[in-house]
């Protein structure tokens, strides 16, 4: 029966010693040990998480880079196309402007030629009239008495005179 009867002495000493051990170990052993295990676990977890986010960021960065390159390429193509268009447009415009100018110059030249011709014709007519009148005077031998009347006659004849 002694075997299964707890002795008061051992009960007392076990209680005291065990409580003391529990108290001291909690304060001086378990708290730092568990704290540091947790801390280390947390730092490992953080490091893994950081690696994961870094990886994701890298992937994002790479995707961004590719996108930027693609965009740049498109931009360049656009610029080239625009430049080409502009060149064509400029050439066309220059051409049309040049031809318009040429036409204008031609028209002006024609006009002045016409004027010159008319002028020359007029001069010629006058010259011819005067000449023919002088010839006629010389032929007739005498001056018409009425200068005024003769001028009228001359003017009339010039007016009626038509080339071709």
């Amino acid at each position: 029966m002694d075997l299964v009867t707890p002795g008061i002495g051992l009960v007392f000493w076990t209680t005291v010693t065990f409580l003391l051990v529990v108290f001291l170990l909690i304060k001086f052993a378990w708290k730092p040990v568990l704290g540091m295990i947790n801390e280390r676990n947390k730092s490992i977890e953080d490091a893994l998480k950081l690696a994961e986010t870094t990886k994701a960021e890298m992937a994002k960065l790479q995707a961004d880079n590719e996108r930027i390159i693609a965009e740049a390429r498109k931009e360049r193509d656009n610029l080239l196309k625009e430049a080409r268009e502009m060149k064509d447009q400029m050439i066309a415009q220059a051409k049309s402007e040049a031809s318009a100018e040429a036409n204008k110059i031609m028209a002006a030249a024609k006009l002045s030629i016409e004027n010159e011709k008319n002028q020359a014709m007029q001069d010629l007519k006058n010259q011819v009239a005067t000449l023919s009148f002088e010839i006629a005077e010389k032929v007739i031998g005498k001056e018409l008495e009425n200068k005024k009347v003769s001028d009228e006659i001359i003017a009339e004849s010039i007016k009626n005179l038509k080339f071709n």
């Binding site: 065990f18 003391l20 051990v21 001291l24 170990l25 001086f28 052993a29 378990w30 730092p32 040990v33």
Partner: peptide, 12 residues
């Protein structure tokens, strides 16, 4: 008790 104290406080 002494073994445990030495062991685990040492561990800490």
């Amino acid at each position: 008790a002494i073994i445990m104290l030495v062991m685990f406080i040492g561990l800490a």
